[in-house]
């Protein structure tokens, strides 16, 4: 088992006769990894398996060389922010974090100092002594994040961590996740909001019906989907000239003029070859190009292709 990776080998989980996840094999590296899939696709089950809250029916899991069945060692290096929006009754933000740190063996004085730091970090310093049951949804999400971060773990597993946060809060949290990932930690974030994952993650794991349908960097994953030509959006002053020249290329299957009169959407089987040819086309036609953008290299589009619902380029 690798000491600097999270690995799953042929992992399956059954709930009685219901399949939770099916024969998953994965290698996760440090950085921000997005776990994406619709509700009920198996993301939370996969996260529970990674953190030992569920035992795999078969297969092996290793988190930096630690078996998730060994909580004593696992939770020294792992912090998990679950999807559950429930807390011990009567707990305040401060007492909740203090108890978590006490279980880590942190002495009382040090725990208090750390609690206030954490509460400051997630913007809850003013609500520290209020009961969590009276917190707003966004505040509860923040206190769960603080709980997961409390012991500065190397691996952070975050199940839908941006749920319930306002736009400012989301931006703050995304910045925090990026900072944590930049420190060399493993930050695994699940979401069913695909463009959000697209915006923050270095790599994605796409789950559907309990199986991993793709994993890796999104561009590489898109490149692997050869059945769907890649779409490139060119915004320029002479879209007709670009479309005509592009259609002369072997690998271009379609060039579509968009209604705005200033864009052409090119579908090609070989994106690299198209980018190489585009420079020549632009110079030859004397076109002024405003932008060249991949139109379906988003998690959204790739996910759509993989599960059979083509994404709509925007």
């Amino acid at each position: 088992m690798t000491l600097d990776a999270i690995t799953l080998r042929d992992v399956s989980k059954f709930y009685g006769e219901v399949l939770g996840v099916n024969r998953i094999t994965l290698d996760l590296k440090p950085g921000l990894t997005g776990l994406v899939g619709p509700n009920g696709s198996g993301k939370s089950t996969l996260m529970h398996l990674l953190t030992g809250l569920l035992r795999p029916t078969r297969g092996e899991i290793s988190v930096l060389g630690v078996n998730p069945g060994d909580p004593e060692r696992l939770f020294r290096i792992v912090g998990y922010c679950t999807q559950y929006d429930s807390f011990p009754s009567g707990a305040t933000g401060l007492s909740f974090l203090r108890h978590a740190l006490a279980l880590h063996g942190v002495p009382a004085g040090e725990a208090d100092r750390r609690c206030f730091e954490l509460l400051q970090q997630v913007g809850l310093a003013d609500a520290a002594r209020r009961r969590i049951a009276g917190y707003s949804k966004g505040m509860r999400q923040r206190i769960k994040l603080a709980h997961a971060l409390s012991h500065a773990p190397r691996v952070l597993v975050l199940d839908e961590p941006l749920n319930g946060l306002d736009p400012m809060g989301r931006a703050e949290m995304i910045r925090l996740f990026k900072e944590l990932a930049a420190e060399g930690r493993f930050v695994i974030v699940s979401s069913h909001i695909l463009h959000e994952v697209d915006a923050i993650c270095d790599a994605v794991v796409m789950v559907h019906g309990g199986s991993v349908v793709a994993e890796g960097q999104i561009r590489a994953v898109r490149g692997e989907i050869t059945s769907q030509p890649i779409q490139v959006l060119v915004r320029c002053d002479r879209p007709r000239a670009i479309a005509a020249a592009a259609l002369a290329l072997d690998h271009v299957v379609e060039a579509k003029l968009l209604d705005d009169g200033a864009s052409v959407l090119v579908r090609t089987r070989d994106a690299d070859a198209f980018y190489a040819s585009l420079t020549g086309i632009v110079i030859a036609s004397g076109t002024a190009v405003e932008s060249v953008l991949p139109a379906d290299e988003s998690v959204d589009a790739v996910y759509g292709y993989l599960i059979g619902q083509p994404g709509v380029p925007t």
């Binding site: 004593e72 679950t82 009754s89 978590a100 880590h104 012991h151």
Partner: peptide
Amino acid sequence: GEILERSLHYSLLAPLDR
């Protein structure tokens, strides 16, 4: 009680022998 309250996982997410 903690299972019904859905808060048992906080105890299980600590570096604690069961």
